[in-house]
Simulated scan of single mutants.
Amino acid sequence: MYYLTQDLFFPEVHLAHTSGVLALGGDLSPERLLLAYQNGIFPWYEDGEPITWWSPNPRMVLFLDELIISKSMRNILNRGLFEVTFNQNFTEVMANCQQIKRDGQNGTWITQDMIEAYGKLHQLGVAKSVEVWQNNELVGGLYGMDLGSVFCGESMFSKVSNASKVAFISLVGLLQKQHYKLLDCQVYNPHLESLGCREIARKDFINLLKER
Rank of each mutant, 00 (worst) to 15 (best):
P43S: 10
I200R: 01
I100W: 09
I100V: 15
I115H: 09
W53A: 04
K120T: 14
F82M: 05
N136E: 14
N75D: 13
I51F: 11
S161G: 13
A95W: 12
Y2R: 02
F205M: 00
D47M: 13
E154G: 01
N89T: 11
S149N: 14
V187Y: 04
L182T: 12
S129D: 08
S170E: 05
L77H: 02
L28I: 04
Q6G: 12
A167C: 05
N78S: 15
A23M: 01
D113L: 06
K210T: 14
Q98F: 05
L124A: 15
V130A: 07
I200V: 13
R32I: 11
Y45A: 11
L175G: 07
G119S: 09
I51N: 07
I206C: 02
E49A: 06
K203R: 10
D184H: 09
E211L: 14
Q134M: 12
I115S: 06
Q88G: 14
C97E: 05
R74K: 15
L24R: 10
Q134I: 06
V61H: 01
Q123A: 15
L208P: 04
K210D: 14
E46V: 15
G125T: 11
D65R: 14
E199Q: 06
D27M: 07
R79M: 10
Q99T: 13
A23L: 01
V84N: 08
D65H: 14
A16Q: 01
M73Y: 04
Q186S: 08
Y118Q: 11
R32K: 08
E137G: 02
C185H: 06
L22P: 10
D27E: 13
E211Y: 12
L209E: 03
K71P: 07
L195Y: 01
G140W: 00
K210Y: 13
L208M: 14
G173S: 11
N106W: 10
Y143V: 02
V172I: 03
L183D: 11
Q112L: 15
T5V: 01
S55G: 04
C97V: 08
G104P: 05
Q176L: 11
G20M: 03
L142Y: 08
T18K: 14
T91M: 13
N189Y: 02
G25L: 00
A167S: 02
I76T: 15
G25P: 06
E137W: 01
F42Y: 04
N136F: 09
I110H: 09
L28P: 08
T85M: 09
A127P: 02
L62G: 07
G153M: 02
K203Q: 13
F9V: 04
L175A: 07
V187I: 15
L171E: 07
L62A: 04
E49Y: 09
L182H: 03
A167I: 00
Q38P: 05
E46L: 13
S55W: 03
H14Q: 14
K181D: 13
V187D: 07
L209R: 00
K128V: 12
Y37F: 12
S129E: 08
N39Y: 02
L171S: 07
G196Q: 03
F151D: 06
F157M: 00
G20F: 04
L183V: 04
V21N: 00
E131K: 08
D113H: 09
R79E: 12
